[in-house]
Design a binder for these strands. Structure first.
Length: 480
RNA sequence: GGCGCCGUAGCCAAGUGGUAAGGCCCGGGACUGCAAAUCCCGUAUGCAUCGGUUCGACUCCGAUCGGCGCCUCCA
């Protein structure tokens, strides 16, 4: 079945249902990384939120065409890649140096996505592969008198677009007051006009263009690639809140200036992440990349859960205590899954409120989806899972669920895991060594050799296998 | 100066006009050889503060205090 989801739209500042332009198919553009360094957990929060968004739509029965750009030409990339080159280095060698840096960090970024079980976009275009499209778009804006040339650079004339400021909800006067003047862009008609094409300065890699050697401005790549790969009417465009202005406002100016009509229906932005109550900053020593945390022994999936269990539009305070809570919460869900995979134990007397497990499950599923459909309310959706677990655990203690009921519950866990990717089905088989140890412990226990039984149990625990003795004498296990 | 957000138990957090979901942690009990897992019981007379509206407010309005964001590169 296909469900309709609602999301907060930055354009209107209201939660609105997402009605795809093409029924059942969502086009999604998300602003990707600038690949000049390791992604930090703040960046990754945004990508994790977008993964949640995408997986929720897919699990809700919609197709999603997702495009995420890889920004591989930009000031910081140039700064970090050109330092070792001589002043008279050729343009080819400058490009090669830039590409070496961006190739390296693109690969690392893609690994990070895998580590966090973030599904890769259907399109991952690199900006440098779309120069012709960007140049064409700028020419089109020029033809429409929305762009002008100054000394080899091209600027967007925001005075030409009435709706400029609609996304950030800024009026022109307010912008004038706050705008600062970039020293080397003083030649613009208005300080709030932004650059579409930057003329090359000495020491920078460049491309040929109708305006001479230069490189694209930051905003133009998203418009050009979004238009090229997803089309003239996008359902959703997303990024971090910091991109609302100027980046997304400028994307709207470029795309809608060229198209002459609305480009994106739903703008969705994820909030920031703080660390232990403070803004994340290298100077505060609280700046973490995924690699830093993994090196500290953090389970990346616990990080995924810690981030996704908070609402995406609220500032998230990352902490190691929160990470621990996430690990423990996951343990509870996974233990429940394991229990449902096994058989029920003999009941121990009457239970005060016998449930109809399938009805209870259906109720949990509805609450879960109502919460997710309401602007991705993950705290409430997860609460529906936890109360279900609590009720069914209690039920199963007294009147064991049938095999069929257990399978239905597992199907719901699969369904929710398709979104959260944190409690997957795991291989039921164990390797021979573990099997042998479990048997050795069973024998020791049967002969009341408690010391040996405990020793083997500890040994297994060190190997990541936790044993659980059941009432009927059998022994269960789980990874922990 | 302009625009906007947030303040709910030790920690995280939902709710947003009808009398406080959920998770983590913690205490007591059951089960167990001991554990683990699980179950049962308990844990905010109160939702930053002070006023107001209302039969009734954590939820609406106003003020105050505290924290944060954007207006400039930034997830």
């Amino acid at each position: 079945m296909r469900r309709t989801l609602s999301l907060f739209n930055t354009l209107t500042r209201k939660v609105e249902p997402v009605i795809p332009v093409q029924e059942g198919r969502i086009s999604l553009y998300t602003c990707g990384p600038t690949v000049y360094n390791y992604a930090h957990i703040g960046n990754l929060r945004t990508f994790l939120f977008q993964d949640l968004l995408k997986r929720t739509f897919r699990t809700a029965g919609l197709q999603v065409r997702h495009c995420m750009n890889i920004t591989d030409v930009e000031d910081k990339i140039i700064r970090d890649s050109q330092g070792a080159l001589p002043a008279d280095a050729s343009n080819d060698s400058r490009h090669a140096a830039m590409k070496a840096l961006t190739d390296r960090f693109t690969a690392i970024f893609l690994e990070d996505l895998d580590t966090l079980r973030i599904q890769k976009a259907d399109f991952l275009p690199r900006a440098t592969a779309y120069l012709p499209q960007m140049i064409r778009l700028i020419q089109d804006l020029e033809a429409k008198d929305l762009a002008y040339v100054r000394e080899g650079s091209v600027y967007y004339r925001i005075a030409g677009l009435p709706q400029y400021g609609c996304l950030a909800h800024l009026d022109r006067e307010g912008m004038q007051a706050g705008a600062s003047v970039d020293a080397d862009e003083y030649e613009r008609d208005s300080v709030t006009d932004f650059v579409l094409w930057k003329s090359a300065k000495p020491g920078e890699p460049w491309w040929d263009s109708p305006w001479g050697p230069g490189r694209p401005g930051w905003h133009i790549e998203c418009s050009a690639m979004g238009l090229e790969l997803l089309g003239e009417r996008l359902d959703i465009h997303s990024g971090g809140v910091d991109l609302i202005f100027p980046h997304h406002e400028n994307e709207i100016a470029q795309s809608e200036g060229s198209l002459g009509h609305r480009w994106v229906n739903h703008w969705v932005h994820g909030e920031f992440l703080m660390v232990e109550g403070q803004k994340m900053a290298k100077s505060l020593g609280n700046f973490f990349t995924l690699h830093d945390l993994v090196a500290k022994g953090v389970d990346p999936i616990a990080l995924r859960y810690a981030i996704q269990s908070n609402h995406y539009r609220k500032v998230l305070n990352f902490s190691f205590e929160g990470l621990r809570a996430a690990e423990n919460s996951l343990r509870r869900i996974r233990a429940f899954r394991k229990r449902m995979e096994g058989e029920g134990q003999a009941g121990s007397g009457p239970w005060k409120e016998t449930l109809e497990p399938l009805a209870r499950l259906g109720q949990a599923r509805e609450i879960f989806w109502a919460a997710m459909a309401d602007d991705l309310n993950t705290p409430e959706a997860l609460a529906a899972i936890f109360t279900l677990i609590s009720d069914l655990n209690a039920q199963d203690d007294h009147v064991a669920l049938t095999r069929e009921e257990r399978e239905e519950v597992l199907a719901f866990l699969d369904e929710t895991d398709a979104i959260f990717a944190a409690w997957p089905r795991e291989a039921l088989s164990l390797d021979a060594e573990v099997e042998a140890l479990i048997e050795a412990r069973r024998v020791a226990k049967a002969t009341r050799n408690w010391a040996e039984a405990d020793r083997v149990r500890d040994q297994l625990k060190a190997m990541g296998i936790v044993l659980e003795d059941r009432k009927d004498g059998t022994v269960g296990w789980r990874r922990g």
